[in-house]
């Protein structure tokens, strides 16, 4: 896999099932692509309660401005990873991946 392919929903499924840990080579390639540093704002999680609650926020690369929180809240880090994955996928594909 040498570029983004929005038909590879199998990779989205693989990530959703297992956002942490061993990934297939194609998924690892995709993740490296999605995590490439660039000039666009990127997502971080603001810790609200340790181990229990996180708030999605955005950061400006290289800036001295603190993260800007959104109104999206997570109580499970796997769900947070999946949410961010879908946003990044949508930026490239024009739409979020639809997986069962």
């Amino acid at each position: 896999m040498y570029g983004f392919d929005k038909t590879r929903l199998d990779l989205a499924r693989e990530f959703r099932a297992n956002p942490f840990g061993e990934h297939s080579p194609d998924l690892q390639y995709l993740l490296n692509l999605l995590r490439t540093p660039g000039p666009e704002p990127f997502h971080v999680l603001l810790l609200d309660r340790p181990g229990e609650r996180w708030v999605l926020a955005t950061m400006e690369p290289g800036r001295s401005s603190p993260p800007r929180p959104t109104n999206v809240v997570f109580t499970d880090l796997k769900e947070a990873e999946w949410h961010v994955f879908k946003l990044r996928w949508a930026r490239l594909a024009g739409e979020e991946p639809v997986v069962e």
Binding site: L31, N32, T36, P37, V44, L46, L47
Partner: peptide
């Protein structure tokens, strides 16, 4: 995040 494999928490 790329080398840590997780969305950064702060």
């Amino acid at each position: 995040e790329r080398y840590q494999g997780r969305v950064m928490v702060m």
